[in-house]
């Protein structure tokens, strides 16, 4: 499935989106897949021990729904977003 990147994830990956394998996956499975596919995300964007995104990076489906524990599909359009408060 295609994962859209914003902010630091995009900066580190050097691309606005990335393909990862799997038709359906949970957030933890996506984090693991991204860590393997794009190791430069590990640390600043991905916490490899907890298998989650490091704040302020977060996963939202179609940019507006939290993934929760349930699996999601490519049609859910996963986005790794990034919020920098203030400015």
């Amino acid at each position: 499935m295609t994962v859209e990147f914003f902010g630091m994830a995009r900066e580190l990956a050097g691309a606005p989106q990335l393909e990862v394998g799997g038709e359906r996956m949970t957030e933890r499975e996506l984090v693991a897949a991204l860590a393997a596919r794009c190791p430069q995300l590990v640390g600043p964007v991905i916490d490899p021990a907890a298998l989650c995104f490091v704040a302020p990076n977060l996963l939202l489906l179609d940019g507006r729904r939290a993934a929760g524990d349930a699996p999601f599909a490519a049609a859910d359009r996963p986005c790794v977003l990034f919020l920098a408060s203030g400015g």
Binding site: P44, F82, A84
Partner: peptide, 20 residues
């Protein structure tokens, strides 16, 4: 603080657009 050092708050523009 990498987000501020590397990108700055302007990075919110694409994010808020994507979030609608």
């Amino acid at each position: 603080t990498a987000k501020y050092r590397i990108l700055g708050t302007g990075a919110n523009m694409r994010v808020l657009e994507r979030m609608g």
